[in-house]
Design a protein around this nucleic acid. Structure first.
Length: 939
RNA sequence: GCUCGAGUGGCGGAAUUGGUAGACGCGCUGGAUUCAAAAUCCAGUUCUUUCGGGAGUGUGGGUUCGAUUCCCACCUCGAGUACCA
């Protein structure tokens, strides 16, 4: 009987679905194991061959763990809110829900063909009200919480209110302590309700504030820092400008230190940890106050080099700094105004592209040096960012290159405060062991000592204090879009109010237009009836609302990362209708044991989700402060684009070898028109697009040879390979094996369809090995297998088991090939070998394994079979490698078929040339030989 | 600029973490089978050679009896980040 992958695969996919083979129970005697993929955004283009790479790896692992006796949770769902569906809706008028639904159907069909062991009964979609009900609920919980720096955790806001009533905010240092004014209990009592609400916004973990945001006019929305790449929007590549807007933000900065510290506890790839560490950007330094001469004003600066304070020769404020207006002298007013306006106009991108141009303006004001009392001129300059530190710096030109350049440009003094250091060309930025000079009481001290001394002195004289600063910013949470979770907030007296849990979800309304309203409100502003209905009938039915002063509902929606910040908890109890997940389920599944997905989410999803988990942990809703123990980033599968070359003179297409030094235009040709030998199917190409219909080709050796280049797989490059086609032609098992065989999981690698013939012929050989007769039964013997066959089997068990543990799936595929070749040669047909082998292969190629398993007479799915145990005794047969330990290690390979005893092995080892070299004439005191393990020579 | 990561045949990539470099697959060459093709099977395939060998894991040094693996410097490529005081 021949191997027909199509029949087999369809049959078993149906079997698994009908028997719910992979449905996970929320309790079991078995230990739990949770394998999670980053769920896909269902785009209109469908899956290409690169997408399933991570899913295949996680599926192999999930199936492996089931064989190993674990109760495995392996769910899948869709991140179904997002911008592309909305943009498509704007263009075509199609409701995003409809296109999303259609896309999900395509995705599901494609995924099903690959034979994943997902528990689809737990499928979730972030755009589903059943799901976003809890996304909204978490938002309200964040709103109702503050970060307590004493307990170092989030607490209910009610506890803060109690404290304010008793003691004011003297004790509760908010993370935003720069801006929050100190109040007493009396102040609090004197506040009006509105003032109280406004004050609490300084503490809530999600809060409304006027912030400078990245505004993208083309997309009509604000963007978070991680949604901007090279100064333009990640999606679409549109320009982004800075703009002040009233926005919801998430106070992720409150968690900066814990997000940093807890990286130590999780087994995540080092690059991701590095990325997050850099993004959080912790730096230690000091906050220093400077008085402004002849006024009562003062301002603070943050510096990482307080030890260089005697090298300050000017101060620089960000052009947006609030003091600029107050301190600028009348003579400088015009110049300053011009400069401030000019910088405001520049986009982020322009600012970035000319970082070398020094610009700034003198304010006319002077600060007072806190120690020497000397006057220091105050400048403004756009190299100082309003959003970092205090938006002001003390400039030490001898110790900072930017200050140095600024000083040179404006001809300001550059006092040298480093001993024996030349600063005539550039600033000296090394800390090292430099000795501080010309610095009053710091003179003669090395960096570290000077740092400590100056902070001690500052704190003593109330000039400044030690301070840790983070680069991380609070995450802007509002989006002026339609296709996202509505923010569950209404406004009363201008102050935001939360919609209670029992009134959630706040359903996304239908709108006629997906564009902003005419008066510039977000798309939800088109749904006036929805807003009023929600308010009156549901939200505050018993409250009297002043229709004139209250705008009913928040019209912004949540950003794309809201749903993905907690979805992993929902899978644990996906159908719970009263809570985001039941306590029992949460306690049972705890956290994700293995998470697989792309590294491009390092500063987005992978950071935000850790933040939300910590918050849920603080408030007692989940039991783990990190949600994923281990993370693996799968690499990208790249496409191999094909190019045809149009001669710019004759307009004819030249075969690759004929280009020489002619001027040609390279044009992407669809890769499906090209065969293994890089020959183009000219007819197919002509019929492809109208403008190629009458194309003329100049051939070499009667063939048109295309050029090839490895690029990202994308529709516009016509290099996309569809997994459906591969499944049709070679089968899902071949696709799975091949994707793994392509190379290490975490590396990027090009896809070459030609290579799949290797794994395909492996599957055919495997099939042949079981000798299926005309009745569809395997020819199998129940005899004792040969020693060789047992050796092959156990060697393979050992290797594959180690491979899976190390996630090097590529080498196990090699091992399978070797095993099948050897067993074929040995003419092995023994049940005791062929059955365990099938279990080994089953995670990788589940369909063929199931089919052969059933042909061996089993009625249960192979998925429930236990993983075979490796027995060392079968490997110590012919040769064995012996490591020798003596000032290092040495390995020996001895032929054990000779059945050597201890003494004989010792003799061989001792007379060996390498041993003699190692001993270099010395006599060994003792030679320890442990057969099968180690040879130890004690010198 | 800073921070990571990687350089091994024609190609994708192995190498038990310091012990016979190039497993396995693709491709290529030759052969068997076939009227022929596909499919399948067998042999070969790092380079060089006067057939004894010699060289060889980006380059140059070092440690070691022994280095693709460890250390130092450099070159190239990739990723992240970008005026963060």
């Amino acid at each position: 009987m021949k191997y027909f992958h199509n029949e087999i695969e369809k049959k078993w996919q149906k079997f698994w679905a009908e028997n719910q083979t992979f449905k996970a129970e929320n309790n079991s005697d078995k230990p739990k194991y949770y394998v999670l993929d980053m769920f896909p955004y269902p785009s209109g283009a469908g899956l290409h061959v690169g997408h399933p790479l991570g899913y295949i790896a996680s599926d192999i692992y999930a199936r492996y763990k089931r064989h190993k006796g674990f109760n495995v949770l392996h769910p899948q769902g869709y991140d179904s809110f997002g911008l592309p569906a909305e943009q498509y809706a704007i263009q075509t008028g199609q409701h995003p829900a409809k296109t999303t639904e259609a896309n999900i159907k395509t995705y599901r069909k494609q995924l099903d063909r690959i034979g994943f062991s997902f528990d689809w009964s737990r499928e979730l979609r972030t755009s589903n009200p059943d799901f976003y009900k809890y996304t909204q609920w978490i938002f309200t919980e964040l709103f109702n919480s503050y970060y307590c720096n004493i307990d170092d955790k989030a607490l209910p806001i009610t506890e803060l209110i109690e404290e304010l009533e008793k003691n004011g905010n003297a004790k509760v240092n908010s993370p935003c302590d720069n801006k929050t004014p100190q109040i007493t209990a009396k102040d609090w009592h004197n506040f009006s309700e509105k003032e109280k609400q406004a004050f609490l916004l300084n503490y809530r973990l999600t809060f409304l504030s006027d912030t400078t945001v990245n505004w993208c006019a083309e997309l009509g929305t604000v963007l978070a820092n991680d949604e901007i790449v090279n100064g333009v929007s990640e999606r679409g590549g549109f320009p982004v400008v800075q703009k002040k807007m009233k926005q919801w933000s998430m106070r992720i900065t409150a968690y900066a230190q814990r997000l940093l510290d807890d990286l130590q506890d999780i087994d995540w790839p080092q690059p991701i940890k590095d990325i997050q560490t850099n993004w959080i950007g912790r730096s230690e330094g000091a906050m220093v106050s400077f008085k402004i001469k002849n006024t009562k004003n003062s301002f603070k600066v943050f510096t990482t080099r307080p030890d260089t304070i005697f090298g300050v020769s000017f101060m620089t404020l960000a052009p947006e700094h609030e003091l600029v207006e107050k301190i600028t002298t009348p003579e400088q007013k015009d110049a300053v105004n011009t400069y401030v306006k000019a910088t405001a106009k520049r986009t982020e991108r322009e600012r970035m592209s000319d970082v070398k141009t020094v610009s700034g303006c003198f304010t006319g004001a002077y600060a007072e040096h806190p120690f020497t009392k000397e006057p220091i001129p105050i400048y403004i300059g756009d190299y100082v960012l309003a959003s970092y530190g205090t938006g002001a710096v003390m400039a030490v030109p001898c110790g900072d290159q930017r200050d140095y350049d600024f000083a040179k440009h404006f001809d300001l003094p550059i006092p040298n405060i480093f001993k024996d250091v030349d600063i005539s060309e550039s600033a000296f930025e090394d800390k090292g062991n430099t000795i501080i000079d010309n610095s009053d009481f710091l003179t003669g001290l090395p960096y570290k000592k000077a740092f400590k001394t100056i902070i001690y002195e500052m704190e003593k004289q109330h000039i400044g204090y030690k301070k840790i600063n983070y680069r991380l910013r609070d995450a802007v949470f509002s989006r002026q879009r339609y296709w996202g979770e509505p923010i569950p907030v209404f406004y009363k007296d201008g102050m935001p109010q939360i919609i209670a849990k029992e009134n959630l979800p706040l359903i996304l309304p239908e709108v006629e237009k997906y564009l902003p309203t005419e008066d510039g409100k977000p798309p939800l502003g088109n749904a006036t009836n929805w807003a009023w209905d929600t308010i009156k009938n549901k939200v505050v039915a018993n409250e009297l609302i002043d229709n004139t002063t209250v705008f009913p509902l928040e019209l912004n929606t949540m950003p794309g990362w809201a749903g993905s910040s907690w979805y992993f908890n929902r899978y644990m109890d996906a159908h719970n209708s009263t809570d985001f997940a039941g306590k029992e389920a949460l306690d049972y599944w705890q956290d994700v044991d293995l998470y697989i997905g792309g590294s491009e989410h390092g500063t987005g999803h992978l950071l935000y989700s850790r933040f939300w988990q910590k918050f849920l942990f603080d408030r007692g809703y989940v039991s783990k402060k990190e949600y994923a123990k281990k993370l693996i980033n799968q690499g990208m599968i790249l496409g191999e684009s094909a190019f045809v070359y149009r001669d710019l003179e004759t307009n004819k297409f030249l075969s690759k070898g004929l280009i020489k030094d002619k001027k040609v235009q390279a044009i992407h040709a669809d890769v499906s028109f090209v065969n293994i030998a890089n020959e183009l199917d000219i007819e197919a190409f002509k019929n492809w697009r109208n403008d190629f219909k009458n194309a003329e080709f100049i051939l070499e050796n009667d063939k048109y040879i295309v050029g090839r280049e490895v690029e990202k797989m994308s529709k516009s490059k016509y290099n996309v390979v569809n997994p459906d086609d591969i499944c049709e032609q070679y089968g899902a098992d071949a696709l799975r094996l091949f994707e793994m065989f392509l190379g290490p999981l975490e590396q990027s690698k090009p896809w070459k369809t030609a290579g799949i013939s290797g794994v395909y012929s492996f599957l055919k050989k495997l099939w042949k090995l079981y000798q299926i007769d005309e009745n569809g039964k395997a020819t199998i013997s129940n005899n004792e297998p040969s020693k060789e066959s047992l050796k092959t089997l156990h060697k393979t068990i050992k290797k594959v088991d180690a491979d899976i543990t190390n996630f090097s799936f590529n080498t196990s595929v090699s091992s399978f090939m070797i095993a099948v070749n050897e067993l074929t040669q040995q003419k092995c047909n023994d049940r005791a070998v062929l059955e365990p082998l099938l279990v080994l292969i089953s995670p990788y190629a589940p369909h063929i394994a199931e089919e052969l398993w059933s042909k061996l007479g089993h009625t249960e799915s192979i998925a429930t079979a236990p993983y075979p145990v490796f027995e060392a005794k079968y490997l110590v047969e012919s040769t064995k490698t012996y490591p020798i330990s003596f000032n290092g290690k040495m390995r020996f390979t001895l032929d054990l078929s000779l059945d050597l005893n201890k003494e004989e092995i010792e003799k061989i080892v001792m007379t060996d040339e390498r041993t003699q070299k190692q001993l270099a004439g010395r006599e060994p005191k003792k030679v320890i030989v442990v057969p099968g393990k180690i040879v130890n020579i004690v010198g």
